[in-house]
Write a protein that binds this DNA or RNA. Sequence first.
DNA 1: CCGAGATCGTTGAGATTGTCAATCGTTTCC
DNA 2: GGAAACGATTGACAATCTCAACGATCTCGG
Lengths: 158, 158
Amino acid sequence: MALMPKPADAVAPKPGSRPSALSDDLSFLLARANAISLAAGNAALAAHGLKARSYSVLLLTTDEARPSQRELAEFLRLDPSQVVSLVDDLQSRGLVERRPDPADRRANVVVATEAGRAVAAAARETARRAEEQVHGQLTRDERQTLTELLRVLAFPEA
Amino acid sequence: MALMPKPADAVAPKPGSRPSALSDDLSFLLARANAISLAAGNAALAAHGLKARSYSVLLLTTDEARPSQRELAEFLRLDPSQVVSLVDDLQSRGLVERRPDPADRRANVVVATEAGRAVAAAARETARRAEEQVHGQLTRDERQTLTELLRVLAFPEA
DNA sequence: CCGAGATCGTTGAGATTGTCAATCGTTTCC
DNA sequence: GGAAACGATTGACAATCTCAACGATCTCGG
């Protein structure tokens, strides 16, 4: 039925071990690994009143680069309207400020306050520990390799 | 402020190149790569009236393993109630059947119909081509390495 | 200079998805 | 035999995604 069901058929499918249909599919593994990582991250960051999303925004606003909301949206692959909500929330908690971009009066530059920077630093530590838990099965070298390979997928050049 | 801002500070941060705060964070790269992959997959599968989710379910029901809904939920990391919706949808289109599990009358075994198997095969080809697009920057070896590393994260043993 | 078209942030609506509690029939296990 | 656990389902609610529209600004050709 399927034109080329599986080139490597000689490996013996090991019937009944695991639903093999997807378990070598890169997209699926990406989705499942991300789901696990995201759940762990959200659980850990809840201690700081953050989720993965708001943490990402907060962390980016501590960056030198002074991102605009549009840049945040693009980098995080979010709709601009979602960035509005995220920044609204962080701003209402005094962690972040909207500053008019002197070079473009349409744009807002989002920058972390002193309090925001403190929360970001603490959350960063928490996140680091949570990741250690999730990625602990990998050696340092493997993690490095994985990071580089994922960067290619996450930021395609061409 | 941050206790250990960055061990590797000698690499020169390249100011202004890219919002560097997250771009070496494994969880973030995972999320972004997945978002891209998912978007491409959904777009491609739309030609078959499927999304990544329903495609995954359909494909698993073509497997020898005859998964129950509970097993589908666990494998795909979904709430059991979401599996109900997904199977409802596929069943209403005649692609999938619910069969009582002879070994456990509480459970349903979900199995693809002949039509479902045909759609799955076609969709699989489409998905393969879409992935080629997304992962095309990687060599075959790199893809293999990435798959193995992701499998460790996606299916933690301990 | 000016005006058409594009861009940035914002609002709001509607669809999709995620999360959770409650229930029914069944199974497990003491 | 009966209590507790489990699989599927339903329903309600929150969170997220996706789009269209709009005002204020910028860009750029004429």
